[in-house]
Write a protein that binds this DNA or RNA. Structure first.
Lengths: 182, 182
DNA sequence: GATAATATGTAGCGAGTGCTACAAAGACTG
DNA sequence: CAGTCTTTGTAGCACTCGCTACATATTATC
């Protein structure tokens, strides 16, 4: 088991990197294997079949995201929800985050379609992000749990509109009036 | 041209029906052809290649959606934005709408990934829906354009959280306090 | 009715898919 | 050293993919 799981854990980061750049649904064994410096034969050997590979990969990516969020924690807290929203939105739109965002929408779509493993990964990532968002709210926020969910709803809606080419007027003009308090 | 486009127009509804039930990205020519009562050979003949077929299909589906929205228009207007939000959310979560919603997230994901044709379709559908949403706002709404965008952001965020298994606490608790005025 | 344009069926190509059978090399254990 | 177990390479299978060559109907035009 030690050797096997060690190999799997060695493979997963490289596979995840490839998936972040080329997508998850369209990925096939041979390109994945080449990206990880091995063969399709060995991927099946280590993961059993492709469905399991995808499931493990999703779990691994959720883990990456989780640790990234943990690393992003800390620093001075914002003073208002609006400030919190803007800060996170800016981070979400950062070019560095784009491969992850693209993959995120693919995961959402797979979750909606019922592709095995996708919903679990999406749920895990969303739960983690909600917990993280709670810690990012202003110190004096009257309802951190509810506020995090409200902000997340607004955030994801805004990001989605951006993906679709409606980042401009989307929520910009409106948030000034509605994002103040709870 | 007449015969050709007539055949194309005959095919498109059946193709769209199949795509709504089985997805767009994973659809391949032979199953599509069988669903439309023809052959892969003829699909290529009528559309040139698969990319063009997908583009035409997306445009056709956007058209379907547009007319569906037009048909849904009318009726008494809601009295508050909150009422408007609830009504549309309920409609969006209706089982009858689910195939369309599933496809919608696939289109969003394709748009994010840059798949040819997806972004245009997503943009068209979103633009149409925003225009429709403006007409659905309360008569006395102080800022219909902005309000539609705000509601759309909230709506799409809520629907996305639902797809991912977070429909419960998502925005429910919060909307009471924040959705009142402009 | 000859000719041409349009429409459709049959068969298949080359590439890619997930996955497996077989064999062999290496490592570990008695 | 013999025997066993883990890891890996090679080759290939049965299948699907988008697409095309070729032949043949069907229809329109002169």
């Amino acid at each position: 088991m030690t050797k096997t799981s060690l190999s799997r854990d060695t493979l997963l980061p490289k596979l995840a990197a490839h998936v972040l750049n080329h997508g998850l649904g369209g990925a096939s064994l041979r390109p994945l294997a080449k990206a990880a410096g091995t063969s399709d034969r060995m991927l099946i050997y280590h993961f059993g079949n492709k469905e399991q590979l995808v499931a493990d990969l999703l779990e691994h990516i959720a883990g990456i995201y989780s640790t990234a969020l943990d690393a992003a924690m800390g620093g001075e807290k914002p003073n208002t929800r609006r400030e919190c929203f803007d800060r996170i939105l800016k981070q979400g739109r950062h070019p560095m985050m784009q491969p992850f965002m693209v993959l995120w929408w693919e995961i959402v779509a797979g979750s909606a379609r019922g592709v095995p493993g996708y919903r679990e990964a999406a749920d895990a990532m969303m739960t983690k992000q909600l917990a993280w968002l709670e810690t990012q709210l202003p110190e004096d926020d009257p309802d951190p749990a509810g506020g995090a969910r409200y902000l997340m709803t607004l955030l994801e809606g805004t990001l989605m509109l951006g993906v679709v080419g409606h980042e401009t007027t989307a929520s910009e003009g409106l948030l000034a009036s509605d994002l103040s308090g709870s």
